[in-house]
């Protein structure tokens, strides 16, 4: 086999790795973006001013993390798409967020349970990615990790107060947990995209992180006096672009201005 001629681009192996890395970074970025957009829907509607500010602060951090990740994804892809093109000009099947992130807010308990499940997941993922062989991803993860720690303090604190609270708050939290639990299988499932970036030392193997996530969420559930749902989670494929119907509605609102007035600026 001869060496690639100048200008012929990267070798097939490297091309495949770049394509996998693009999708991997997009999955992280899209999950943050969609979750941030969901939290933003609470602004002006939360049960108390402090919680309104808290949810808005979380949303802001998540959208900030999404900007760093989508910008990087666009550079990996190298086809001229920046963070805005990726956020505003893709349709639902091109979004690769976890299915859990796009689930509607429901009541406050529902939002808290969704947030807590994903905060605990992000803690593990960002912690491991801080040591990634990809230095750009490691830098983004190390920064996001610091923010995720206080997101998790907020969501786990509320999970415990609501679960170990009144009959009403407990019932609603249990209901939210039972309804959202089925989406958790996707958090640590690995497909060929994950396997390729894991083999390159870019992403962590999912096994140990999944185990730590399970132990942490078990501890929190015990503190919240809530039983862990016994039903087995189903496979969902949001990170492969197969979504529940909720994502399209979210995108319709998020992308409306840019789709209606292409290129519009503040």
């Amino acid at each position: 086999m001869s060496a690639a001629a100048p200008g012929s681009g990267p070798a097939p192996g490297e091309r495949a790795l770049r394509a996998a890395l693009f999708r991997y970074v997009l999955r992280l970025g899209d999950t943050s973006l969609v979750l941030g957009q969901r939290l933003g829907e609470w602004i002006g509607h939360a049960p108390a001013l402090e919680e309104d500010l808290a949810l808005a602060n979380l949303a802001l951090d998540l959208i900030g993390q999404a900007r760093l990740l989508l910008t990087y994804a666009g550079e990996i892809e190298a086809e001229g798409r920046d963070e805005d093109a990726l956020a505003y000009l893709r349709d639902a099947p091109e979004f690769l967020n976890l299915t859990l992130a796009e689930q509607p807010n429901g009541d406050f308990a529902h939002t808290i349970v969704r947030q807590w499940l994903l905060d605990a997941w992000q803690l593990e993922v960002y912690e491991a990615l801080s040591a990634s062989a990809d230095t750009r991803l490691a830098a983004i993860a190390a920064k996001a990790q610091k923010e995720t720690r206080y997101h998790y303090r907020f969501s786990s604190g509320w999970l415990i107060r609501l679960g170990d609270g009144t009959a009403e708050s407990r019932g609603r939290t249990q209901q939210a947990l039972d309804s959202l639990w089925r989406f958790t299988e996707e958090l640590f499932s690995a497909d060929e995209v994950d396997e390729r970036v894991i083999a390159a030392g870019i992403a962590p193997a999912p096994g140990p992180a999944a185990e730590r996530w399970r132990q942490q969420t078990d501890r929190d559930l015990r503190a919240a006096t809530l039983p862990r749902p016994s039903a087995q989670p189903h496979p969902w494929y949001g990170k492969r672009g197969v979504h529940t119907e909720h994502l399209g509605h979210l995108l319709a609102e998020m992308q409306h201005l840019q789709r209606t007035y292409p290129g519009v600026h503040w």
Binding site: E50, L53, A54, N57, L58, F154
Partner: peptide
């Protein structure tokens, strides 16, 4: 502390 979140990302209430 009233809240870990305040008027800007860098401030608590």
């Amino acid at each position: 502390r009233v809240s870990e979140f305040g008027s800007t990302p860098c401030k608590a209430h």
